[in-house]
């Protein structure tokens, strides 16, 4: 849905057409997107037109990508660390 909107504004029925979803489900998803600030919609006459909000998209994209990348790098370093230190003795209380 967002992908479609990045190509330009669309009506709700245009958004729903390629999706295997009921109209109420489409409307519900649009509510989620609007609530998150990614999408704005405006009703003119009987047609509700949706547009993506590029600033919100960038901000959301930035945060997810940055955090995800940071964790991926950390988890890859964990893999390297484990490969280099396979036999680190377990910490056991003295028996």
């Amino acid at each position: 849905m967002v992908e479609r909107l990045t190509r330009g504004p669309a009506s709700v029925s245009e958004l729903a057409r390629p999706l295997a979803m009921s109209m109420p489900a489409v409307v519900q998803h649009l509510h989620v997107l609007e609530h998150s600030g990614l999408v704005r919609s405006e009703k003119v006459g009987r047609v509700r037109t949706c547009t993506v909000q590029p600033a919100a998209l960038r901000a959301a994209e930035g945060w997810i990508a940055e955090r995800r990348t940071a964790w991926e790098e950390s988890l890859d370093r964990l893999g390297e660390y484990l490969a280099e230190h396979p036999d680190e003795p377990p910490k056991r209380s003295k028996q």
Partner: peptide, 12 residues
């Protein structure tokens, strides 16, 4: 950060 934005929209 600008660097983070270089990541594609795919993950988003």
């Amino acid at each position: 950060t600008p660097a983070a934005r270089e990541h594609g929209t795919g993950e988003l």
